[in-house]
């Protein structure tokens, strides 16, 4: 379990991160969203023990990440938004360096290196020079480096930036697999569609403040009391519109055609289910009943607009 409690970081007069708090459980993949300079990298660097927070605390499985660093670092894998690869070093040598400094016993290193190379699909490049790899492969090599010591928490800062669509898809699949392996993964990005597919939790940060945290649905229901429900009926759309007037939670209805109407709804999920039940009981033949889902981009814009204003 990762518990982040009131992390704050100041640089001179500037507060880069201001009281960020959240919790993640094993298997959670958190999309950490924010525009450039919002405080994503600073937060991640504090969790990676590279920056000392001005205030606040974080623990991973009860091990503090903000003090007693040697123990904490064994539990963390950090992939920054750059590769930091050495010249003239082979893939296996690069991984062996990190396996060694992370304390993997010498006899176990060859096996561990083979395993992480297989997981990242780089086994066939074991003897290649790291610098000669394509950008996508270098990215996967960096991920392999993070995995040599089998960490519980993976911090991936802008992992997909600069990757081609195929490399992005492969990376997404890899991150999802890590989540299935029970690791806590925090993926930061300002490119929202790349996160939507595999993150079960989202944190939205702007100007150093965590404006929203939770699943996309939770955040929507948290920030948006009114939602738009699209209802399709086989017939009698006009009558259905009249029927819905005055029902609990219905603010207004809009007729969108012969068989479609949109309902502006304000209420709990129970009220929403009740509304559907009443329509069925009212004898309307409903073919579709769905909430217009906001995508991650809409959500980000909605959450951050208030903060920016």
């Amino acid at each position: 379990m990762l518990v982040v409690d009131g992390l704050r970081k100041e640089y001179g007069q500037f507060t880069a991160v201001d009281g960020v708090s959240f919790q993640l459980k094993p298997g959670d993949i958190m999309g950490f969203i924010g525009s450039n300079g919002a405080g994503k990298t600073t937060t991640i660097k504090m969790l990676a023990t590279l920056l000392e927070p001005t205030l606040g605390r974080a623990t991973l499985n009860d091990v503090p990440l903000t003090e007693g660093l040697i123990d904490a670092r064994k539990l963390i894998g950090y992939m920054p938004d750059f590769f930091g690869l050495y010249e003239d070093i082979r893939v296996w040598e690069y991984l062996e360096l990190f396996a060694s400094i992370y304390g993997v016993p010498k006899t176990e290193r060859p096996g561990v290196i083979d395993e992480v190379l297989e997981l990242t699909d780089l086994g066939f490049k074991k003897d290649a020079f790291a610098k000669s790899l394509s950008r996508g492969m270098q990215q996967r090599l960096c991920l392999a480096r993070c995995l040599v010591h089998d960490p519980d928490l993976l911090l991936l800062d802008e992992p997909a930036s600069g990757l081609d669509p195929r490399a992005r898809a492969e990376l997404k699949e890899l991150v999802a697999e890590l989540g299935r392996m029970g690791k806590i993964v925090i993926v930061s990005s300002h490119i929202l569609p790349e996160l939507a597919d595999f993150c079960n939790v989202v944190g939205i940060i702007e100007r150093g403040q965590l404006l929203a945290f939770g699943s996309v649905e939770e955040i929507i229901s948290g920030i948006e009391q009114r939602r738009m429900i699209e209802v399709k009926v086989l017939e009698r759309a006009n009558e259905a519109s009249m029927f819905l007037h005055g029902k609990e939670g219905v603010v207004s209805t809009f007729l969108m055609g012969a068989s479609t109407l949109k309902v502006e709804f304000e209420g709990s999920m129970e009220s929403q289910a009740q509304l559907l039940a009443e329509m069925i009981q009212g004898g309307f033949l409903i073919t579709e009943f769905r909430v217009d889902a906001a995508d991650l981009e809409d959500l980000f814009m909605k959450v951050t607009t208030g903060a920016l204003n």
Binding site: A48, T49, L50, L69, I70, D71, R73, K74, I76, Y78, P80, F82, F83, G84, L85, Y86, F98, I101, Y102, G103, R145
Partner: peptide
């Protein structure tokens, strides 16, 4: 300059290593 210093310094070893 290459950024590798952050990667090695966050290993569970002291900076003196």
């Amino acid at each position: 300059e290459r950024g590798s210093i952050d990667l090695v310094l966050m290993a569970p070893k002291s900076s003196t290593y």
